[in-house]
Design a protein around this nucleic acid. Structure first.
Lengths: 208, 208, 208, 208
DNA sequence: AATGCTCCAGCTGAGC
DNA sequence: GCTCAGCTGGAGCATT
């Protein structure tokens, strides 16, 4: 604490150094907190943002692997709720290696007519954005379920809808559930005849 | 400390009572830990089990709401990875209330011929189970993407595959990623032309 | 499905077993929570109770060792605040092994007249209890600083004061500090002369 | 990401901003970790350092209050282990306000002969430092229990002992307890004779 | 070197 | 709305 600084006191030196660093860290943490508070008061669901951040921290491959396993487990206990397994889960279960990384449309080649070039995706995204701008609804997505451009269109639509100049739509914010029933009761699905297929088509998609 | 027990010492009484309870709690926790350890050594991915448990703790409605919001956020930042929004997310974004809860097949009535009664689902599940028993692959699911029975078949298949008498399939266990690249690099989707569409149809599915 | 229960579904079995255990655990946790809530509304400082529980979890030997190290570190950075090192810390620094475990009064033999037999301690404790009963103050402890009976008298006094039939004294409950200044500024000890004389600031265990 | 940056996407903006901040935070955390690792390999007990840091985070007043309550609770359940209550705890129990804050030696003036001016403390500290330099032991502290200079001497001794140029003494590092017995069995204090003499002069001071 | 364990910080949910 | 206790996930550590 004196000159060089603390008078040759090793422990004090360590402690003070750490305290400085922790002060910096606390400052950053406060900034993060502020940012989230701002997001919250703008109408965003902070919890979902946290989840999003967590997902972004993992690589895509890891994300997919974990997701595939989880889906499989859900299926095994009867909790799919009407959503079929995703392709990556099917691939895993078939013993195929994670992902052939087919830059070209290898698995869509059964669609003889149009091997949709990647470019299409950007176009679809832009179309979605434009649609949102024109006041179209998300239901107006023109692409069918299996079409990769369907997702791109969705992305464009959502990106525009949440863009600045616009209010955060009510659907983006979480309404307090007022304490749900607590259990989905999926385990009964096995026994009971009626499988809450309320889920019905989870993402089947109407044909354009 | 004397008779009844601690000699009229309130604090000691409180502390001892809590300690007893904590001992019981610790015992239960140990049992849980054992159970998970057993699961792990049987080949299950404990982390995924934990996630499954978390999901089961919420009601189905809540689960869907959170999921819908998360999907929307993913879309807005371009992380859909080829998976289009699910139906419940679309419903939310359209301002429709959570879910009409149509136990009867109201939303599938566009299929004029066969309003598939819930029974179908059980049949599909059983079919999936039988298929697994016969050594069929998950890819042999005969139902098309939009069909709710597709999920049921998957459930049956997975339930059988993970049943006793059978080894836990390798796909159910997590392989160490050996430290992934760290970031998927999705943000580049906006700019770049090539949108890892390897994802392509996430779960469109070939029609048998 | 039927049999034992879940139809030979291993994962489901695991999950359900864990859920049962977690339900039990949650029940215990609720009881603990209630107990603490009761203590709080009786005027106790729950945080201090938690700390007490933590200390009781470690053996006396471990508690002393940790304490000795911490004291030494405090001394080295000038945070003793007027409290000299305890004997166990001195022993450690002298290289003596943890504790001679002298059941008889080995180090008090410098008190030539009375090697106080253990009985004295009980008597002192009882005296403290009686003093409290008679409305004496804690300051009336008749034993001098170095006398082991001083602590025993304190114990008796406190045990009686907190006994049932009596209100929990105001001093036992924590008054909100109104957000302290955040730093003690002990590092100034090097420069400043005045050490917080009384003593006190000992430490707690780690606050969870 | 493009222009201003992300194309007017609010959510993406938030997320990216947070990610930047978290990256900074992680960097600081790594530095802290390094610092602690260094301390450890120099022979310090990192856990004790963490505890020290925690204590330094609270104001002295808060630290004293918490400590006083905890001591009182320990006394009430018979866990004093021979250490009498500290002065601040006594003050609390007597209903006196936290601390008279006597800058001058008010509570030592009952020592008629020498009202030790604060300067003495620095002298004592220096004496302790010199003693350590000369190879004296901590046991050679010349001040008696009640003397505030006793603590100052200890501080000087410890500060020197841990100063650079010197190896961290073995007593400063924690030896693994090899899993303690789990409970001290303090409640047996009533029965046992052993008055944890270590207490000796803990922080007594005035003779009754 | 890999595995399992322990410990810590950060996050989540409940209470005031 | 804020704080606080509990808890889960991650990291370091010891061990085989």
């Amino acid at each position: 604490m004196t000159a060089g600084h603390n008078g040759g006191n090793r422990l004090l030196g360590i402690v003070e150094r750490i305290e400085e660093l922790e002060a910096e860290k606390a400052e950053i943490a406060a900034q993060i907190s502020d940012e989230k508070k701002g997001a919250k008061s703008a109408g965003f669901d902070v919890k979902a943002i946290n989840e999003l951040l967590r997902e972004r921290r993992m690589s895509k491959a890891e994300r997919e692997e974990r997701w595939a396993i989880l889906e499989t487990y859900r299926a095994a206990v009867g909790m799919l709720d009407g959503t079929p397994l995703s392709e990556s889960a099917r691939r895993r279960l078939s013993g195929e290696e994670p992902k052939p990384e087919t830059p070209d449309a290898s698995d869509t080649d059964e669609t003889p007519a149009a091997p949709p070039p990647p470019l299409d995706l950007d176009a679809a995204r832009e179309a979605g954005r434009a649609a949102a701008r024109d006041g179209k609804r998300i239901l107006d997505n023109p692409f069918v379920a299996g079409d990769p451009r369907r997702a791109a269109w969705d992305e464009g639509w959502c990106a525009y809808t949440g863009s600045d100049g616009m209010e955060v739509p009510p659907a983006w914010r979480r309404k307090k559930p007022g304490k749900g029933d607590g259990k989905g009761g999926e385990s009964g699905a096995e026994a009971g005849g009626e499988p809450g297929q309320g889920a019905s088509g989870e993402d089947e998609g109407e044909p354009e």
